[in-house]
Design a protein around this nucleic acid. Structure first.
Lengths: 339, 339
DNA sequence: TAAATCCACGTTACCGGTAACTTAATTAGG
DNA sequence: CCTAATTAAGTTACCGGTAACGTGGATTTA
C-alpha cells in the first residue's frame, strides 16, 4: 500500500482526505479556502497536508473547472532588451502578486512567429494574453476571438484593439520630437534605425518624425536602417555610415536611446562635438543614458507603468470587472543638452 | 445542439472525431502523429480539425498522461538585466524549439522568494526546472527531491547540485582578475558592488578577488557595497563614494560591466584619466562596453551558451537520455586598456 | 412548536484527453 | 493454403480535482 503510491512521491487530495477522515470535497474546500467547513476540520486537513507533503495539482484543477486557469501568456519581441525586460519584470511582478503565472514567448517582430506562439499558447487555455506585437496576422486575431480569451495589446496604442490596449502612440512620439528638433533650428536631419528586416514600433516613430518634417516643408536628409537588432553598436556603426555618406547632417534622430548613445560615442571618437557639431536625440530613456556627461534629449517612457497597468487591466477583465478598453500611459519629451 | 456547444467556441476531440467518422482515440493518434492510422484517415481528421477550428487542450493532455507536461519553470534574479535577459532569451529559444513552454519567475536574489515560486511552480507538474538562485532553502531542495523533477542549476557552478549544474565558478573569475590586476602593478585596489541586501553571485567574485590579493599579501584598499541593484548609475555613484573616502585608490574592480562603465564615466566627469590615474575592470562583457572609447578589461561570459546548454541538458534528462551532471561553460579574462 | 433557514459535510458526475488492452482485417511466410 | 505477424482501428478505464446537488442536524423564525 505504501509502496504503490510512492512511485513519485505524489500524494493526492484523496489520500489527504482519507488521512484526515473527511471527504475529498471537504479537503478541497479547505485548501481553496472556500466556505463550508469548521475550524476543527480545517486543522485536521492542514495537519495531514503538512505531514504528507501534499502538493496541489493545478493541472487537474484547471482541467476540472475551466475557471481556475491562472496562466497568462505574455509575448514580447525579445527577452533581452532593456525596455522590454522592464515591462516583463513589471508584468510578472503584478501577475505573481495576483496569483497568476506567466508563460512567455519571444516573437522577434515577426507576426508569423507570434501566430505560432498564440496557437500553442491557446492550447493551455490561458486566462488571458498580453501581446506586444505591432501587428497580428488575421489568423492570430481569429484564433483569439474564437477562444474568447481576454487580451491586452501593449506598447503601441491600438485604437481598435482586439480587446484591450495599453500603451501610447509611437507616431506621436516621433512627431513631437520632429517639431522639437526643427524648433531648435536644425534643418538637415537624419534618421538611424535598426529593424529593417522586421519593422517594430520604431517604424511608427520614424514616420511620425518624417511627418513633422513634412509639416515644416522639410524632408529627411539621410536615413540609415541597419539589418540588425537595435543596440549600442548598431548606433555606433549606423552613425559612421550615415556621416560617411552625408557630411552635412546637423542632427540625427535615433530609433532608441541605445542607438543614440552609440551615436554619441561614434561622434566622440572622430572628434565631433555634441551638440556643437551635431545634435542627437533618442527615445525610451534607458538607464545607460544617466551616466553620460551630457543629458540625452529623449522621450521618457515608463515601462514599469505599462507592465503594471496592462497586468491589472487584464486581470480585471478576467474577473469580469469593468475596465477601460483603451488606456494611455503617458510619455514625455525630455529635453537634454545633446540637441 | 449547435447552441449548447458554442458556449465558448470550444470544440473538443470527440466532436472532431465524430465529424470525421472515427473514434476519439484515432483522432488523438492522428493529432499526436503517433502510429496506427492510414493516410486516408489522417486526411479525414485533419480536414475536420481545420473546418471546426479545433484547438487541442494541453491541460487535459497533461492531466491525462503525466508524461506530456511540457512546462519548464525558469527562475532568474531579475527579468530586466542584460545578462539574464540574454540567458532567458537563449533558454526560451531552445525550449520552444524542442516543444516546451517557459514559465518564469523572478526571485530578486531571495531564497525565500525562490522557495515560494518553486512551491507554486511544482503544482503545475512541470517537466523540469531551471534555477539560477545562488543558494536555496532546505525546503526548496526537499520539495524538488520529493517531486523527483529534473532541475538544472545555472549561472554559478554547483559542485554538488540537486540534479544538474551548468555554469562556471564565480570565485575563480574574481581570483583570476585579482591576479591580473596585481600583475599589472596595482597595489591599492578597491571593490565596488551593489547587492549588499541580498548577495548574488557577485559576492563570490568579490571573495575570489580578495583571496587573490591575500595570496599577494595585500588587502582591499576600500570597498563600497551599495544597497541597490547593479547598474550604470550605481557604478557611477559607488565610484564617487569610494574615491571621496580614499583618494589613493589606484584601481577598482567592479561587480559587473554596468557598474564599471558607470565608474569610467564618473572618473571622466571629474577629469581622472583611465587607466592613467586609475585602473578599472568589470565582469560579464555586456554589449554597452563595445562602444566605449577604451576597451574595458573584463571577463567574457557567454550568456547564450549557458542558456542553450542548460536547456539542452535539462531536456535530455527529461527524456531520460544520459547527461553530464556538471557542465562548465568557459569564461575568459579579456584584457582591455582600462587597466 | 412546526416550519424555514443555515451550516458542515458527503455523493455523484464530469472535465478532455491518453495508456493499455482488444478486435478485425490484411499481409507475410513456410 | 494455413498460421503468424502486422496494421488500423475501437473500447474501457482512468488521471485529480471541482461544480452541483443532496442530507441530516442545529438554530432561528413565525
Amino acid at each position: 500500500m505504501a509502496g504503490k503510491n510512492e512511485k513519485r512521491g505524489n500524494v493526492n487530495l484523496s489520500e489527504v482526505a482519507r488521512a484526515a477522515g473527511v471527504s475529498k470535497m471537504t479537503a478541497s474546500r479547505v485548501l481553496r479556502n472556500a466556505s463550508g467547513f469548521s475550524a476543527e476540520t480545517r486543522d485536521k486537513v492542514m495537519k495531514q497536508v503538512d505531514r504528507l507533503g501534499y502538493v496541489p495539482n493545478r493541472i487537474a484543477a484547471a482541467f476540472g473547472s475551466e475557471q481556475t486557469s491562472t496562466i497568462i501568456g505574455v509575448s514580447v519581441p525579445y527577452l533581452s532588451s532593456s525596455l522590454f525586460g522592464a515591462v516583463l519584470d513589471s508584468i510578472n511582478n503584478s501577475l505573481a502578486r495576483l496569483g497568476f503565472q506567466t508563460m512567455i514567448g519571444a516573437h522577434e517582430n515577426s507576426a508569423e512567429t507570434e501566430e505560432a506562439w498564440v496557437r500553442s499558447m491557446l492550447s493551455w487555455r490561458p486566462a488571458g494574453l498580453i501581446l506586444s506585437g505591432h501587428s497580428h496576422t488575421r489568423t492570430t486575431r481569429e484564433l483569439i476571438k474564437a477562444q474568447a480569451v481576454p487580451v491586452v495589446e501593449i506598447w503601441n496604442l491600438n485604437t481598435s484593439p482586439i480587446d484591450l490596449s495599453v500603451g501610447f502612440n509611437h507616431f506621436d512620439c516621433g512627431y513631437e520630437m520632429g517639431l522639437y528638433i526643427i524648433g531648435k533650428g536644425y534643418r538637415n536631419i537624419g534618421y538611424v534605425g535598426a529593424d529593417a528586416q522586421a519593422p517594430g514600433m520604431g517604424a511608427f516613430r520614424r514616420n511620425g518624425f518624417v511627418s513633422a518634417m513634412k509639416s515644416a516643408s522639410l524632408e529627411l536628409g539621410a536615413e540609415e536602417l541597419l539589418h540588425d537588432r537595435s543596440g549600442f553598436y548598431a548606433g555606433f556603426y549606423g552613425t559612421e555610415n550615415i556621416l560617411n555618406r552625408r557630411n552635412d547632417i546637423d542632427a540625427i534622430y535615433y530609433q532608441d536611446d541605445s542607438m543614440a548613445i552609440g551615436g554619441i560615442f561614434y561622434c566622440q571618437s572622430i572628434g565631433m562635438k555634441v551638440p556643437g557639431d551635431i545634435g542627437i536625440a533618442g527615445w525610451g530613456s534607458i538607464e545607460a543614458a544617466s551616466v553620460l556627461p551630457q543629458r540625452l534629449t529623449t522621450t521618457v517612457v515608463s515601462s514599469q507603468a505599462i507592465g503594471k497597468t496592462a497586468a491589472d487591466a487584464l486581470i480585471a477583465r478576467v474577473r469580469g470587472e469593468p475596465v477601460e478598453d483603451i488606456i494611455i500611459t503617458p510619455t514625455r519629451l525630455a529635453p537634454g543638452n545633446t540637441i
